[in-house]
Design a protein around this nucleic acid. Structure first.
Length: 238
DNA sequence: TCATTAAATTGTT
DNA sequence: AACAATTTAATGA
């Protein structure tokens, strides 16, 4: 397993295709956007690469252009706790970026991914100058708060079907992950890593959710049919 | 662009 | 954990 910080290696300027998948650019005025574009960086991360690590000083505000990342933390007893999966369109680290504190979690590529980074000084410049940017970050923080509260309920529950459903619902969040759309590209193995179940069990849960009409299982991904049903876990007990 | 081959993913035991 | 079946990605004409 590699231990590179993705954006410090294999870094390149963003291409138009990358820019199209960065949601907050649309919230900026032309002047602001110019400033942001001049500083934006894009890098490729191999599976297993770290995007950021606990304790490192904040250098960038990160976003997922393509691929899938995992946000996790190592607790005191040595076990690893996964907070969230990060699909395309997701940006993270604004909390620590605002405070200029060290990262409080690890973010690792679950598969080959494209990661974008906005240098922290540019991030602060946008906070100071752009109303649209502030609005975006505020929505982001608010939505993520809701997601973490939901995540606590997931952990309390022991029903694997419910856990899979809620994790999927989180990944399909259109505010946090506008790049996902109707079809989330994730293998059952990757989902198993995120939820903390075996691939077999995830496979079974997906079948049940499909039977209920909440999702459709496709090769290498999941199509959402009824996000509300996925969110509530539908007719299943806790 | 198409056919062939290799690799990845899934469903099942 | 191992297997065969299926789907996708890669290759080269």
């Amino acid at each position: 397993m590699s231990h590179d910080i993705a954006l410090h290696q294999r870094r390149r300027p963003p291409c138009p295709q990358d820019l199209a998948s960065i949601p907050w650019l649309a919230a900026l005025l032309p002047v602001e956007r110019e400033h942001a574009l001049a500083a934006l960086q894009v890098g490729d991360a191999k599976a297993g690469d770290y995007v950021c690590r606990v304790g490192r000083p904040v250098t960038y505000w990160f976003g997922v252009v393509d691929g899938l990342l995992k946000m996790s933390s190592d607790s005191a007893d040595g076990s690893t706790m996964t907070f969230a999966g990060l699909p395309p369109g997701g940006w993270f680290g604004e909390g620590t970026a605002v405070k200029r504190e060290p990262y409080r979690y690890n973010v690792q590529a679950l598969r080959k991914s494209v990661v974008a980074g906005l240098p922290i000084d540019t991030f602060h410049w946008l906070l100071d100058h752009s109303i649209g940017f502030n609005r975006f970050v505020m929505h982001q923080l608010n939505e993520r708060l809701g997601q973490f509260i939901a995540a606590r309920e997931i952990d309390r529950s022991n029903n694997p079907d419910l856990r899979v459903a809620r994790s999927l619902a989180a990944l399909f969040n259109p505010v946090l992950y506008p790049g996902v759309g109707q079809v989330l590209r994730i293998t059952q193995q990757e989902l198993a890593y995120l939820v903390g179940l075996s691939r077999q069990r995830v496979n079974e849960s997906l079948s049940i959710l499909q039977q209920q009409g909440a999702i459709e299982v496709v090769y290498g991904g999941v199509r959402v049919l009824d996000l509300g049903a996925v969110r509530t876990g539908f007719l299943r007990l806790k």
